[in-house]
């Protein structure tokens, strides 16, 4: 037994030595850099460094993926990793962890830090106070803190109701039963905007249509979202839509039942090519590129970006796998034009 004990101790010491050996040399030069923080303006030739903190994952086929895809697209356009670095923190559902992540990225000299969720706003502003040389962005929000003296915060939002309206028009035209269904997550924010727009668009196209709306009370309850879809189908719906990462469950059900689906946030066509008609896709590339250009010109914040159909931040992407009738596409285009020229208000008062 004594022998075993000594063995154990020896093993531990070796392990500790190995780890310490690795840690020590690396730690020495890094420590001062971590403390100096805030020297964000990248010298020429160094890549532009963007970090993003997100509540879900880069593969959620919804809110988080939309932004990540945007970043990757911009990266490709700028010339790959040598021109722009992307770092991300996924599944930051705990806001205190997100706050730590935002601060670390600032410490590490990232040029632009994106807090991709309204719940991160307070933490981000706190860090933004301490790092006036670093740019921050958050959404969906319209508050850049200008009135409180912040000059290094961008805000971004999506007029989800616009694409919601167009999707509502498409749904009402394709609907034969007189009922369409909406699988919502939590009754707030981006999802609520989209759903309200959807209902307005559907009603404007067919005043007699019933738009049934349910919420699952969660962004990730895939199973309940699926059952909500089933419920809508039983209640007569033949076209469905919904929001947040949970909808993949609902799409699975719609596919099985042969019921049409309209997507939002990301392009969901690949999941069910036979039944997805169209998606409102959030294209953040324009906003990101403009932010980067502004930062490189020395303007670190103060702008609110709004994705709209007009500025191409919102796109209605039809699924080629589904043969959408031409008159439906024409009506959708008409709705898009109406929203752009202001003759259509996508939210009913």
């Amino acid at each position: 037994m004594q022998k075993r004990t000594i063995w154990l101790l020896a093993l531990i010491s070796v392990l500790i030595l190995v780890i310490a050996g690795c840690a020590a040399p690396a730690a020495a030069p890094a420590a001062p850099a971590a403390e100096s923080g805030g020297e964000a303006a990248a010298p020429a030739g160094e890549p532009f460094k963007v970090a993003i903190v997100m509540p879900s994952t880069i593969t959620d086929l919804a809110w988080s993926q939309a932004m990540y895809d945007g970043l990757v697209a911009v990266q490709e356009e700028m010339g790959g990793e040598s021109a722009m670095e992307i770092a991300y923190s996924e599944s930051m559902f705990n806001v205190a962890d997100a706050a730590a992540a935002i601060r670390d990225y600032a410490n590490d000299g990232y040029n632009l830090i994106i807090a991709h969720g309204t719940q991160y706003g307070n933490s981000m502003f706190e860090v933004a106070t301490d790092f006036p040389e670093t740019s921050f962005a958050w959404g969906t929000a319209v508050d850049t803190g200008k009135d409180k003296g912040y000059e290094n915060v961008f805000a971004y939002e999506a007029n989800a109701q616009e694409g919601g309206y167009v999707n509502g028009v498409i749904a009402a035209l394709l609907d034969e039963s007189g009922v369409v269904g909406v699988v919502g997550p939590v009754e707030a924010g981006d999802a609520k905007l989209y759903i309200d727009g959807f209902a307005t668009g559907a009603k404007a196209t067919n005043p007699d249509i019933a738009v049934n709306i349910s919420y699952t009370g969660s962004f990730g309850d895939t199973a309940l979202a699926a059952e909500a879809a089933n419920t809508h189908i039983s209640a007569g719906a033949d076209v469905l839509t919904g929001s947040a990462q949970q909808v993949v469950g609902a799409i699975g059900v719609a596919k099985e039942a042969g019921v049409l689906w309209l997507g939002t946030q990301s392009d969901q066509s690949s999941l069910a090519p036979d039944i997805v008609v169209a998606n409102q896709v959030y294209d953040w590339t324009g906003s990101i590129k403009d932010m980067i250009a502004k930062i490189q010109a020395g303007e670190l914040g103060g702008t609110v970006y709004t994705l709209t159909l007009e500025n191409d931040g919102l796109k209605i992407v039809f699924n080629d796998g589904y043969a959408t009738p031409d008159e439906v596409k024409a009506a959708a285009d008409e709705a898009i034009q109406g929203i752009i020229d202001g003759s259509i208000t996508p939210l009913a008062e």
Binding site: I19, C22, A23, A27, A30, A34, E35, R103, D104, N107
Partner: peptide, 16 residues
């Protein structure tokens, strides 16, 4: 090794 160095240094190795 790189990963675990970060783990230890990141949580205990500096004030932050």
């Amino acid at each position: 090794f790189t990963a675990y160095t970060v783990l230890i240094r990141g949580s205990l190795g500096n004030v932050n």
